[in-house]
Design a protein around this nucleic acid. Structure first.
Lengths: 196, 196
DNA sequence: TTCATAAAATACTACCTGGTATATAGCAAA
DNA sequence: TTTGCTATATACCAGGTAGTATTTTATGAA
């Protein structure tokens, strides 16, 4: 009962690493069981098929991990603009879980899976909607306590900021350098200042 | 001589359609030759291998197409901020070549190929760098003629805007709805106004 | 200890993948 | 009409793919 859960966990973690680096399509089940040193029997005992494992990765690995770095920094903050900037700086520059050359795992999954797999789509949407909600709430609070200008539309700003983040991740991949991150952050700072 | 070029062209065009919709990895050579009604012999006569065809798609299909809709609207404009907004509006809302559910082909390619194929990387980088250059130049001109504020950093702004575009494309894919585009555009308008 | 079941190991398959070898048709110049 | 090259067609292959069927081992309750 205990050891079995460990096996499952190991599969998910290793599979995530591989998929984050190489993409979902190009990571085969054989690759996964080879690097996890788990047999095919064990793999298909824990997961009905590859896609079920993929969704499990989103829900059991990606979700809790990103919740820590994406969601938490935005709750219970007095100054949302400052919090957002710090969040982005952390995600892009300091976070060592997210590598510039591999982009953002959530974004990668979206890009790769969205057109054809509704299960993946749904699982990802849950993540994103939560992020949107938290950021919107933070901005709303900021409006109330005076840190954010009254005329600001929280939803619009949230969408705008999140788009920028996903996009710059893509640029980072292409450039394979954190330089672009610094340029982006500089302008993000300017933009955020206009919301005060 | 003439007909052969047509065959090659047909392969590239059909292959691009398939890849735009389904992704590069998940579109097989067999798929391509089936939908083009071209035999394998013809395919491998025109292209050394699948990847060479992929790069040819970028250079011969994507590049000229995107040049028309991404680059041209930004050259010879008096008011770059207005031009940028119109460009984005056109790309996201009116352009019928780009479909919300499939995202932006250049972005898709980047996402899917970047980590492991340097040929694709290079070909894509050429496209992007050109877009960056044109937008930066437009902003610079705007600064000179008074349409853009002096303290604006063209490169930063360009990066910021382009990131937003790529990111919102990803959101559109996830949401499978143009609604997110309108939200984004609204805030883009606000942002651009701060640069005047 | 027994025994049912959970968990994992092994061997296999049907199919798809990119790519090749080889044969044939089209076509232009001689 | 012959020749030589361009272009296309056909048949095939070796390796990889997700997934299955079957057997074996571990585990925990009685």
């Amino acid at each position: 009962m205990k050891k079995s859960a460990e096996t499952r966990r190991k599969i998910l973690e290793k599979a995530f690493e591989l998929i984050y680096i190489r993409g979902y399509q190009t990571t085969s089940v054989d690759d996964i069981i080879a690097t996890t040193a788990v047999t095919k029997g064990a793999f298909y005992y824990h997961f009905k098929n590859k896609d079920e494992m993929g969704v499990a990765i989103i829900n059991e690995i990606l979700k809790p991990t990103l919740e820590g770095s994406f969601i938490e920094p935005l709750i219970n903050t007095e100054n949302p603009l400052e919090a957002i900037y710090k969040l982005m700086y952390n995600l892009l520059i300091e976070n060592e879980f997210l590598k510039v050359e591999y982009g953002c795992p959530a974004s990668n999954f979206t890009q790769e899976m969205t057109p054809w797999n509704t299960d993946f789509n749904q699982a990802l949407d849950v993540l994103i909607q939560k992020w949107i909600k938290v950021m919107t709430n933070a901005l709303e609070k900021g409006k109330k306590n005076g840190h954010v200008a009254k005329q600001v539309n929280e939803k619009q700003v949230t969408m705008f900021i999140m788009s920028g983040y996903w996009g710059i991740r893509n640029f980072g991949k292409l450039a394979n350098s954190k330089k672009v991150y610094f340029v982006y952050l500089q302008e993000l700072k300017n933009y955020l200042k206009t919301l005060e």
